[in-house]
Write a protein that binds this DNA or RNA. Sequence first.
RNA 1: GUGGCCGUAGCUCAAUGGUAGAGCACUGGAUUGUGGCUCCAGCGGUUGGCGGUUCGAGCCCGCUCGGUCACCCCA
Length: 524
Amino acid sequence: MERRAVERVRGTQDLWPADARQLEVVRRRLEEAFAGFGYRRMDVPVLEPAELHLRKSGLEIISKLYAFDDLGGRRLCLRPELTASVVRAFVAQPAPRLPVKVFSSGSVFRYERPSKGRYRQFTQSGVELFGASGALADAEIVALAMDALDRLGLVDYRVTIGHVGILGELLSKLGLTGRVRTQLLESLEETRRHGLDAIRGRLHELDPDLFDPLGDDPVERTLPAQSDGVGEEHVRASLTGLLSKMGAERLGRRSEGDIVERLLRKLRPQSHREAVERALEFMERLGGIRGEPREVLGAGRDLLQAFGLAAAPLESLDRTVHLLEAFGANFHRVQLDLGLSRGLQYYTGMVFEIDHAGLGAESQLCGGGRYDDLFRALGARAPIPALGFAFGVERVKLALEAEGRPSGEPRAADVFVIPGTPEYVPFAARVATTLRRAGKRVDLDVTGRPLKTSLNYADREGYSQVAVVGEAEARDELVRLRDMGDGREQALSLADLAREWPAEGARPPGGAQLPRAAEAGRGH
RNA sequence: GUGGCCGUAGCUCAAUGGUAGAGCACUGGAUUGUGGCUCCAGCGGUUGGCGGUUCGAGCCCGCUCGGUCACCCCA
């Protein structure tokens, strides 16, 4: 016989009743808020084709995916988040009418190094809103996330809102596409933490032509500086003109056309490089703009103007912020941060995070934003505007505890029924059942240990009432409910109790302050 | 993924390199079945695991597993 205990998988948790209950209460309150905004519950599988997440997620999440082959040879994964599954479900079977407002909760899995507030299996609870573009939808989503935390009585949280569309617009204007664009979008937040050189290094790995030292060729040095928006045809034309002026016969035997093409080839990386440099400069300045909404919007407009960009994303943010006020959000908890980028690459517009000061390193409670391109990426015929967010339920629980408002040990039941002696066990079972049918939560003592020990236990566990049933009770067909506070007893005849069943609106006298639905509907 | 700290009874923690302990919890008794207080006794350990150094390791060293803190990243 193997004596060594089987250990819990790293990064997972066993939740004993007090913690399990608290997590359940948190999740339920969040979901109540979602429902209060007209969102409906939807469930999606824990198992998904690995491809679903490989196609849409950033490298960071992909590298942490729990992926494996099932016995049928399918490449599967445990979901690392919920949004992709909900979108996949919609793409496979579109809802008859937009908009779609749904919420879902459940376990998600990421192979990360565990620490406090960071687990390999954790619970997300979030919403998705499909089919609405514009600031009102953006504001509703943020207001909903804040309302959910307010319902829980959380105080010390901070909402940070940004907009990745600003940088996206610049990159488009500079003609930056593909992996370089993706890399830059993902790096926005990194610029202020690690500086531009860190980003340059990463880009160089991606494309070695970027940030190579310039050659010494004097001709290359005199080439016209490439700036944004200048097409290759234009460059070819001006190069040809330049060569004519220099006198082509002095450049050897090659034809003018050959030379131009060769220079263009050398030039292409450089123009690319300069576009990237311009993007980096923009990112650095953008990243510095954060704080109180009005100031950020002002500074943002100045920057966009300096780079000749349309102010549309900022105006959208402006409207979102104003609508947030109209939603009655706690405005002093909101700040704007134009350098906020979020790691998931599929975000396209407004993005936001909610952090809590009491959590240390893993302080983010919630993250979300707009992901208008995700439907196309997952195979939808038409683009559908979409946005959403997810809470980390365990982190919200930790935040509540950090603010010193734990739910307290839940009382197991209202009444503890103790058989006085073994021979009255059947009668005790009958008493317990009668009380339950009369609407009480009843815990029957099944240990058979000495009465004194059981009473001691009942007292320490905090039962408000105890019923010891023995000879006298069995003879008279009654139960004596003893109040554990003042010791007074109340005799109830079983016949009277039975008449209450099924009693209309029977309510347990105590311990009902927590959601009743948590108990109902279990184990069926 | 990087660096630091920590792992001793169910829980919280002690123990100069020299016989593994306390409080709480649990079981029994004082009290011949009616709680909380008190007192007494009992149960409970491969000191996370494997290896090394040493006459001797909970303690020192290496690896490993787990936790935690700071990075990183995210929720």
